[in-house]
Design a protein around this nucleic acid. Structure first.
Lengths: 191, 191
DNA sequence: GTCTATATACAGATAGAC
DNA sequence: GTCTATCTGTATATAGAC
């Protein structure tokens, strides 16, 4: 692996676990077994290194979802499962971005916008499925689609954060997600 | 106001908005209009200043809840409202603690334990109300109390985090909370 | 491209006058 | 209690040899 990549991977790991301010380039250099000067040769400043790290981290984030042939309630359950899968598969970087949102001096605003976009896209997709189900008669008309969709994403995010924060959550995240589907999907289902 | 208090309040504001690492004592001194040396006279080190800040911030956190004369489903709704009220009234410090949990080098573990305790206390209280309701016949037996309680706290936390992260959440937090009560309480209510 | 050596700034912390 | 002046370490960043 070339030095540039080595630096990037080391920096990614350190930024993600310690944050921007608490990670020094000396530490990155040491962990990557290169000199500090080499970091500045490959990356203009500490902040541009950080920008590159964030770009590479966010890159695989996407929303490719196949819902063909499923009823609307089934689509909702699938969307919930996919969200949870995605988060558990990207636990490190999700945590990283969440803490970036809450604080941090180096805020790459354009990339934040991308994450918010993805989130809203997901929420809108939930809402659209609910509306389609209401028109098709598989979902109850008692719920406002947008609000219910927002509740689902909130609950998902909350389960996620709880997993980050609490030492060993007594009900497992999986159990809560399954309960989420039971309460937030089954109860608005018609039949 | 005496200098010590001035320092504490300035440090609280800066730590909360910028974090521990990104806040220098020079900045605290400047903003509080005192010399750096005075900070060290009042507080041994930067970290003990931080500890004191955290202690003072967490101090008003408590769980004094009056649920007399309410049916179990009403108690659940009340608990949810109280949680939401508490969080909105302590928005700054809640955000502060959340970001502490996600990162930060200075981790005062004993105080973290206190927050986790409060959280588990609240969750257990929800679970107990549900169980009592099941025994008394006001709550459906279809739900597992502990899991359902965990789902409620997750959803609440998620709504909270969403409020922190998203620019202007299209459904308001209030709307989502009311939807939460409709979906997570009404549907397990008997009658 | 990669290094050693160095410049410069600012961090946390101390000494000592008042 | 509060200050100015200073110490010491380490941070980001640069110069210049190879």
């Amino acid at each position: 692996m070339d030095a540039r990549t080595k630096i990037l991977e080391t920096a990614t790991r350190l930024f993600a676990t310690q944050g921007y301010d608490s990670t020094s380039l000396s530490q990155v250099a040491r962990d990557a077994s290169v000199s500090k000067a080499l970091i500045f040769w490959h990356f203009e400043t500490k902040e541009s290194l950080f920008q590159e790290v964030v770009s590479r981290t966010i890159e695989p984030y996407s929303l490719e979802i196949d819902l063909e042939g499923l009823s609307e309630p089934e689509q909702l359950r699938r969307l919930i499962d996919l969200y949870y899968e995605f988060v558990t598969q990207n636990l490190y970087s999700v945590r990283f971005f969440l803490s970036l949102f809450l604080r941090e001096s180096a805020r790459p605003d354009d990339l934040f916008a991308r994450i918010i976009d993805l989130h809203e896209l997901y929420r809108r997709q939930l809402a659209e499925v609910i509306e389609r189900g209401q028109r098709g008669g598989t979902v109850s008309h008692d719920v406002d689609a947008a609000t219910h969709a927002a509740l689902i994403t909130s609950a998902l995010n909350g389960i996620l954060v709880q997993g980050f924060v609490l030492p060993t959550p007594s009900p497992t995240p999986e159990a809560i997600v399954s309960r989420l589907k039971a309460t937030l999907v089954d109860t608005i289902q018609v039949q």
